[in-house]
């Protein structure tokens, strides 16, 4: 495999599990995402790296429909989802976690996950008034919490969890939507080295044993190099290189973009 430059993709974005074509997002004068064409094949674990402000989170926001693109298309499993409402995308199989700890803070850990399982079951709007919700989706929520290692914290209020566990709860909720493609926005941010290793193993486990396509924004280069199949480098909104981690590491353009930033870490 070789390193691909800007606007070269491994396959036609329309045939990828997740693809973008010439995606642009501007905020006034600032172009946060600048003509990004990407194709993530089904089953791949793709890391998205780049310096702060490179547009990684904005790319995620546009792909998941939180923001609409200024130009370009988003393809999901062969369907153009650019104009689909944000709330429909998890039901199609496209889920995400957030960079900040977005939780239903005053609810228990179990309820945080259970209500998402319930949503996956009922669709975007469910008017079931007659059941006791506590039993709806409970088993699956328990199963997911076991997987992410929060099995001992079912009754803890989400706001009272330690930071690292809140990050894992975010992943659990994204998993509860039963996704095909999972976008994880810095799942290890703010974690100790030990917790980072544990979370990296969790991401790898989700990818391997559930067979999900994973798109991962990550700052920790050890994590990126050890678990990703391919890496895409964003710089000033542009996808400057895509390739296997070892080759990205030694690529001249990438070195240039980071200019000593990541070079030393690499």
């Amino acid at each position: 495999m070789t390193v691909l430059g800007p606007n070269e993709s491994i396959l036609d974005p329309r045939e990828a599990a997740l693809g973008t074509e010439g995606l642009v997002r501007r905020f006034g004068e600032v172009t946060a995402v600048d003509d990004v064409t990407l194709a993530v094949p089904s089953g791949e674990l793709r890391a998205v790296i780049g310096p702060n402000g490179a547009g990684k989170t904005t790319l995620f926001n546009v792909v998941t429909g939180l923001l609409s693109p200024t130009a370009g298309r988003v393809w999901f499993e062969g369907t153009d989802v650019t104009d689909a409402p944000q709330y429909e995308r998890p039901h199609a199989g496209l889920a995400r976690s957030f960079q900040s700890n977005e939780l239903f803070t005053e609810e228990s850990v179990l309820e945080n996950v259970r209500v998402v399982v319930q949503t996956a079951e009922y669709g975007p709007f469910g008017l079931d008034l007659f059941r006791d919700a506590a039993s709806v989706g409970r088993e699956r929520a328990v199963e997911i919490l076991d997987r992410v290692g929060l099995d001992a914290a079912h009754d803890t209020l989400a706001k009272n969890l330690p930071h690292g566990d809140q990050r894992r709860l975010g992943i659990a909720m994204a998993l509860a939507t039963d996704p095909d493609v999972l976008l994880l926005d810095e799942p290890t941010s703010g974690m100790s080295p030990g917790a980072t290793t544990k979370t990296a193993a969790l991401v790898e486990d989700i990818h391997d044993s559930l067979g999900l396509t994973v798109l991962l924004i990550e700052h920790d280069m050890d994590v990126v190099l050890s678990i990703s199949d391919r890496v895409t480098v964003l710089d000033q909104g542009r996808a400057i290189a895509t390739g296997p981690p070892e080759e990205i590491r030694t690529d001249d353009d990438v070195q240039e973009a980071y200019l000593g930033g990541i070079r030393e870490e690499l």
């Binding site: 709330y87 469910g126 506590a134």
Partner: peptide, 24 residues
């Protein structure tokens, strides 16, 4: 206490997250 009511509480707690998790 129904699934509908629990969804309302999720909307109250974090509207953006509720939408991202698939709630209209």
């Amino acid at each position: 206490r129904s699934p509908f009511g629990r969804s309302l509480v999720a909307v109250r707690e974090n509207e953006g997250l509720a939408r991202a998790m698939g709630m209209n």
